[in-house]
């Protein structure tokens, strides 16, 4: 452990614990999942960075969306994201979740994923190398340190707008709202 961080550990232990034990759920939407097995296995060994794959969204706090997002998978992505515990961080991997990528004029592919769920980090490239995941993870540490990886707080704050966008893309949603839509929560506070 880095000695410079001891003060941080005493100051905000929960944040530091979250930071160094990211439990990742990989959403295998597209070709990006090809990069994930070498990342989590011996070749690149994501556990060096405290990233470990878990089985279900209820055990995860890092959501890695690897590849393009079709309208049908968007539904599953929203449900997965809403099932995760807070604090949760979503990282979009590859250029497709950013702006559609090579599917920019496809009739059935979601173009900007951050209109539907909050994204804390983007990894650009088509496809990014496995090392890019580690760059993203270390960058995510910085963001968590500075309190900038606050996608779950934004989700709560702007939930009405997110839900509206989700309904614009998917029609009527089959599940009830995660947060009450009627009232407006102020300033990103969460309990």
């Amino acid at each position: 452990m880095d000695r410079n961080q001891i003060a941080k550990w005493f100051k905000e232990p929960s944040k530091m614990a979250n930071k160094y034990s990211l439990h990742a759920i990989y959403f295998c939407t597209g070709c990006g999942i090809i990069e994930v097995p070498p990342v989590i296995t011996a070749r690149w060994d994501a556990e060096r960075f405290g990233v470990i794959p878990v089985a279900t969204p209820r055990q995860a706090n890092l959501f890695l969306i690897t590849g393009y997002v079709s309208v049908k998978t968007l539904k599953a992505i929203i449900r997965t994201y809403e099932q995760m515990y807070e604090p949760k961080y979503a990282v979009a991997f590859g250029s497709c979740p950013i702006n559609g990528g090579m599917y920019w004029d496809s009739y059935n592919t979601i173009k900007h994923l951050d209109k539907y769920i909050p994204i804390d980090g983007w990894i650009a490239g088509c496809m990014p190398r496995p090392e890019a995941i580690f760059v993203a993870v270390t960058h995510l540490w910085t963001l968590i340190d500075k309190g900038m990886a606050n996608g779950y707080e934004r989700y709560k704050k702007y939930y009405r707008a997110y839900r509206r966008n989700q309904e614009l893309a998917l029609g009527k949603l089959e599940w009830p709202p995660l947060y009450p839509i009627g009232e407006h929560t102020e300033g990103g506070e969460c309990d």
């Binding site: 173009k111 900007h112 951050d114 209109k115 707008a161 966008n165 893309a169």
Partner: peptide, 13 residues
């Protein structure tokens, strides 16, 4: 369709 879906901005809530 996808272009008309607004981005989530700070002015919304």
């Amino acid at each position: 369709v996808f272009g008309s879906i607004p981005a989530i901005g700070d002015e919304e809530g």
